[in-house]
Amino acid sequence: MSDIPKSVKILDIVQENSLVKTYTLDISLHGKPGQFCNIWIPRLNEKPFSVADDDGKVMKFSIAEIGPFTQELAKKKVGDKVGIRGPYGKGFEYKKGEHLVFLAGGYGAAPLYFLARQAGEDGCEIEFIVGARSENLLLYIDKIKKLKNVHLHIATDDGSKGYRGYNIEVLKEILLNKKIDHIYTCGPEIMMKKVSEMAFEKNIPAQISVERYMKCGFGICGNCVNDGTGAPSCKKGPVMSNEEVRKLKDFGQYHRDEEGMKVKL
């Protein structure tokens, strides 16, 4: 039992799209799709990131450059060290042989790719919808195409690639035409809120990755508690069943900042 960061070397860095790089770290913490690890840059900060891959030897994280921390991370080179601890939280679960649909918005494609690879190999058939604002922000497209038993669907808001419009429309279409056993989603909360409602109406089980401001990762600091249940999402989530998500009063409405103040979505 140790929740103290370990320092590890960056083995590889790949530019995925205009914003996202994938970092391969010289460690396996046996992370599962949907779980997260805290990555530490000494004297700066430590932030949670979902596991994009863990093959038992190395781990991968696909991280967008969007703030001071990720900008500093983007300056790192192969051979540099970062700290890591985890994995934390509950990941996605599936049953072998089911027909699944994945809805990824933006960076949500990374953990769902990790899940699709495992589920596809376990005989699941997967409709994988990837959405982004435009083509240059789509993530993991080439990797997803190569997966076994996976059918790729693309949507962009501006129509620069695939369906023009929100990826949720593609989901609606698939649910109309195919018999789907389970829905999985990771991405912007407004999008996931719609998935939650759609899944409930159609009576299809869903698993949703609920992201809150997490500090400790192990249910102590209390910053990531959801309203409604009052439980910390780092322990009871981030992946929750739609049944659990529907008990949350903050989901799709507001987040809390680092001092616990409500911030509207």
Partner: peptide, 17 residues
């Protein structure tokens, strides 16, 4: 309003936090 510290804010093992 009072700001806390940057992370890591909590570390722990089997003996202590």
């Amino acid at each position: 309003r009072h700001k806390g510290h940057p992370n890591p804010v909590i570390i722990a093992n089997e003996y202590y936090m």
